[in-house]
Amino acid sequence: MEKIIELKNINKNEAARYLGYRDTLPDVETTKTILECEAELLKVIRPQYVYRIFDISFEDDGVHVLGTELVLKGESIKNHLSGCKKAAIMCVTLSGEVDKILRTNEVNNMLRAIIMDALANAAVEQVCDEVENIIEENIPGYCHTWRFGVGYGDFPLSTQKIFLETLNAPKQIGVCATESCILTPRKSVTCVLGLSADKLDNTEKSCENCSMHGKCAFSKDGKSGCGK
């Protein structure tokens, strides 16, 4: 039986960071609005997810996901999965109602729109965390790498369509990609976890192993990165 994920709250510190707050906390009024927006969003967020675990093999043209048509291309994903015999591929979404509430607020209340957008981004990461936990439970004895997103580094965004088909994601959780490989509904994520029975050294994401190292907005001002 699949486990149903329910979000009871959203990581508001994370959302505040997306809104640009780093060393300061949002003021009282903004905090109040963030709380209102959180309550409104939680009413429409319906977390859905799908994942599958496959054996993988490293070939010249990329990492083959065995038993499927999926090939993971690019140096960065190859490095990321090195030492792994299996990989979990997953897709999560907050569902389409979130898109609608964002659209409505963009028309009549931009403040709430940007706050909800940031909250939704934080929420989708939380759902990913939950799915990671579920995967851990289902494959005991394995440790896993951090989540490597489709389109991250040189892992081509054009993998999106076949990635979704492999998970049967359009049918199972209603996630599709546009011609430009953008996921719809918008607050959705596709990513890969490397799994290994041996110890791995890339279980946590850090500035050093990030493809945006030295380029990202968070580190431009010389301070430490995004905090992930």
Partner: peptide, 10 residues
Amino acid sequence: GQLLEPTGTL
């Protein structure tokens, strides 16, 4: 296999 507007672009 693609969502229609306004969520998608079709």
